[in-house]
Each structure stands twice: as C-alpha cells, then as structure tokens.
C-alpha cells in the first residue's frame, strides 16, 4: 500500500465502497423514477404530488441518497487529485474545500427536498 493511500485512511477507502453500494440502489431508483417512468414535463407540482403519495419514503430516500452521493463524488474527486501527487499542503486545502462544498450542497439538497415535500400541504 503506497503512502498516500495509508495517509488517506482505510475509513475513506471503505466508505467509498459502502456509498458505491448504496448508490447502486438509490441512483438506480432515482433514474427509473425520473427518466424511465416519467410522464410529461416534470414540474414543482408533479414532483410535489409524487412525494405526497409517499412522503416518509421520499424523505428517508433523499436524506440518505444526497449525503451518500456527495461523499462518493468528492471523495472520488479528491483521490483522483491525490493520485497526481500534489504537495501535502494542496491535498489538505483541497480536502477541506471539498468537505465544505459537500456539506453545503447536502444542506441545499435537503432544503430543496423539504420545499418539494412542503409544496403539497
């Protein structure tokens, strides 16, 4: 095992696999629902209506899906970056920036899902 893989930690390596497995189900379902069984144009009302039919399911679904996807995407991008052997300082800064963007986008995603869930009340 090369040094940067060790420094990156086994947790990140393992969690990349765990989120990969989660995404097979969540991203698969997301595509089937929004691309395959789509009827007509997607609007705020059509999504809100779909969510209203199963609010708990969609809430739990996206609250797991969004953070899992963001972790997988930014951890993947970070490991691609680290693979080109940047200086230690650049790794740390990029890692920190990726965490900030990832967490911010998770919050944005959860607020967006909540407003779509709230749109039916």
């Amino acid at each position: 095992m090369s040094a940067h893989v060790k420094a990156r930690g086994e947790f990140l390596w393992f969690f990349q696999r765990v989120t990969a497995l989660l995404l097979v189900y969540f991203l698969g379902m997301h595509i089937v629902i929004l691309h395959f069984i789509r009827k007509g144009t997607i609007t705020f009302a059509s999504v809100a209506e779909k969510f209203a039919a199963n609010p708990v399911f969609y809430k739990v679904f996206y609250f797991i899906f969004i953070p899992a996807l963001l972790f997988h995407a930014f951890n993947g991008a970070w490991s691609v970056f680290v693979d080109y052997n940047p200086p230690e300082k650049a790794r740390k800064i990029t890692g920190a920036v990726f965490w900030v963007i990832g967490i911010s986008l998770t919050v944005l995603g959860i607020i967006a899902v909540n407003s779509l869930l709230g749109g039916v009340k």
Binding site: I42, A73, A77, L108
Partner: peptide
C-alpha cells in the same frame, strides 16, 4: 467519475432552485 461530478454541480444548481419557490423551479426545469 469527473464528468458525473461536473454534471452533478449543474444538477444541484437546477434542482436547488426549488428553495426559491415553485416559479423559479419550473422555469429552471
């Protein structure tokens, strides 16, 4: 993987418009 990250950022921009209400969301979509 890199293409999907770029796509996802655009996707977040479009879907994130839901936080500004249904008119913005429908316009973006």
């Amino acid at each position: 993987g890199v293409l999907l990250l770029v796509y996802f950022l655009m996707h977040a921009f479009v879907i994130g418009s839901a936080v500004h209400g249904h008119v913005n969301f429908d316009t973006a979509l």
